[in-house]
Design a protein around this nucleic acid. Structure first.
Ligand SMILES: [Mn+2]
Ligand SMILES: [Mn+2]
Ligand SMILES: [Mn+2]
Ligand SMILES: [Mn+2]
Lengths: 220, 220
DNA sequence: TTTATAATTTAGATATATCTAAATTTAAAT
DNA sequence: ATTTAAATTTAGATATATCTAAATTATAAA
C-alpha cells in the first residue's frame, strides 16, 4: 500500500473537483488557484503524484486523474463530508464554520473511525451544503440539480445544494432565509439584471441577485 | 501568537508526561525513548522548543518545561483525552483502540471544536483509561491513586486508572475482567512473587502477577 | 512564419522533521 | 587525576512542502 501525505491528498482532491466541473484536463494554474499555492509548487507536486500513478502528468499539458486517483480523492471527500455532517448535526456548528475544520479532520488515518462515524451519523447521503457523500467504495449518486437562474418564471423546486461554499456566501443565505431543503417558487425574473424573486416555503419572499441565484442549486 | 507544529506539540506532551512522573529534569534519551525517535532528532527539536521558550534547555543537562510549556502540553492532553472519550462513548471504540487515533485528532486546530466536543460529551472529568481531563485553563484535579500492589491484604478499593495504556495490557485486563470503576478487595497476597488475588464486584476472583498489579491504579 | 505573451517548469533557497555517523561533553571508574 | 563509557550534540544526508527568480515551452498574435 502506497502512503499519501495530507498535502498529496489535498492536491488530489482539488484535481478531482476541478475535473468534476467538466474539464477533462486540469492545468497547473487551475490547481494553483484552488490550492492557493504557487504554480512552481504545483509542478513539483504533480511530478510526485504522477510517480505514484494517481494522475497522468504530461509536462506543460496538464493532468488527468486516474481511476486509482479518483478512488483516493473520493475517500478523502467522503471523510471531509462526513466530518462536516458531524460538526453540524452533533456539535451545533453552522454550515459556514465547518469547512476549515473538516479540511484538517479529513486527513486522520483510520478506517474504523470513518466506518463508525458514518454509522453514528446514520449513514447520511448528503453533507450540510447538499453535496453527496461517496460510499466506502467511492460510489456517489449525485442527484440532478441546476442553478436557480435556470428555473422558469412560476416554476417550483427545492433548494438542494450550494455551488459556492464560502462562509461569506453561506452567511448571506442564512441572513435572507435560504436553506437546504427549502421549497421555493420563482415569483419574478428580472430580465435586465438576471435577478430573481422567490418565495420560500410559501411564507416569505426573497430577492436574489443573478450572482447569488447562480450559486443556489435546486431540484424540480 | 506563536504557532506550534504537530511534532512540536507531541514532543512537548512527552516532556510534560516524563516531568509528571517525578523527574524535574528530562533527558534527551528519555524523550528519545518515549517518542521513538533518535537522540539526534531530539536534540534538534529541543533547540527549537527552547527558542520558543516552552522549555528551558541547557545543552547536555536536559530540559525543564516552563509554565508556558506546561499550559500548552495540557491543552494537547485535554484534546487527546476528550477525543478518547468521544471514540469510546460515541463511536463504540474499545479502550485499547483509541490511543493512536487520538494522537492524530489531538492536533486539529480549532478552539470551537474542543469546546463543543467537551460540551457534547457532558464535560467528562476522566478519559477511558481513568486519566483526568484538564479544563480549558489547563487545571487538572488528579484524584489520589496508588498501584494495586500497595494495597494491604483484605483492603478494598476501586480501580480508577491504568498506568500502562498499551493495547496489549488493556486487552489483557478485558480478558480477565478488570475495568475502570470495578470494586475490588485483596483476597490474597503472595509474598514469594508479589502476585495478588482480588475479587471484582464481590462476584469473581482474579489472579494478577506483580507486573500487572503494579499497572492497575486504585482508590481506597 | 516569426514573435510576443502566457503558462509552466526548473533551479536554488528556506523550513520542518527525520536519520546515521562522527565529534564532543559529562559522569563514572580506576 | 586520568581514563573510559555513556549521553548528547553536531555534521551531513534525505524527504516533504513551500517560495522567488530564471529558464523553457506552448500558444496566440502579428
Ligand atoms: Mn467543505
Ligand atoms: Mn461541504
Ligand atoms: Mn492516549
Ligand atoms: Mn488515555
Amino acid at each position: 500500500m502506497i502512503k499519501f501525505t495530507p498535502a498529496e491528498e489535498s492536491y488530489l482532491k482539488a484535481i478531482y473537483h476541478i475535473s468534476d466541473e467538466g474539464k477533462r484536463t486540469v492545468s497547473t494554474n487551475d490547481i494553483s488557484f484552488q490550492m492557493k499555492t504557487k504554480p512552481a509548487s504545483v509542478s513539483d507536486m504533480l511530478r510526485r503524484l504522477g510517480e505514484k500513478e494517481v494522475i497522468e502528468y504530461r509536462k506543460y499539458y496538464g493532468v488527468n486523474i486516474t481511476e486509482e486517483g479518483k478512488k483516493l480523492a473520493l475517500q478523502t471527500i467522503r471523510k471531509h463530508r462526513l466530518w462536516e455532517v458531524f460538526l453540524v448535526e452533533k456539535l451545533r456548528f453552522s454550515w459556514d464554520e465547518v469547512h476549515e475544520v473538516a479540511d484538517e479532520l479529513e486527513h486522520v488515518k483510520s478506517k474504523l473511525l470513518i466506518q463508525r462515524l458514518d454509522e453514528y451519523l446514520g449513514f447520511p447521503k448528503f453533507d450540510p451544503h447538499g453535496d453527496p457523500i461517496p460510499d466506502e467504495y467511492g460510489d456517489v449518486r449525485a442527484r440532478p440539480r441546476l442553478p436557480l437562474t435556470d428555473l422558469e418564471l412560476h416554476a417550483t423546486g427545492q433548494i438542494v445544494a450550494v455551488k459556492d461554499s464560502s462562509a461569506a456566501f453561506l452567511k448571506y443565505l442564512d441572513k435572507v432565509g435560504a436553506y437546504i431543503g427549502a421549497r421555493i417558487r420563482v415569483m419574478e425574473k428580472v430580465e435586465f439584471d438576471g435577478s430573481v424573486e422567490i418565495s420560500v416555503d410559501n411564507k416569505k419572499n426573497i430577492f436574489m441577485s443573478k450572482d447569488v441565484a447562480a450559486n443556489v442549486l435546486v431540484m424540480l
